[in-house]
Amino acid sequence: MKATVTVMLKNGVLDPQGEAVRRALGSLGFEGVEGVRQGKVIELDLGLADRSAAEAEVRQMCEKLLANTVIESYRIEIA
């Protein structure tokens, strides 16, 4: 089973890297990019058969390590 965790800065937390990317896109002529947020994607290979157990486990991983919930939010997809 594969889990994909997407970690993003929370709304309201300034993302200087995303902002730098937005400006660079503008300088390349891509107009109309009103905002860019940069995050990270973490893929996990899990040796678990039960989908809901896997999701609960990954949620624990996010809370304990993968995301810093002071500044980041996370989304889990199980496939």
Binding site: V13, L14, P16, Q17, A20, N68, V70, I71
Partner: peptide, 17 residues
């Protein structure tokens, strides 16, 4: 220390990158 939650808040990338 912030990651250990001994102190509140977080340290992010410098605004000037």
């Amino acid at each position: 220390l912030t990651e250990m939650e001994l102190l509140p808040g977080a340290l992010m990338r410098n605004a000037g990158l």
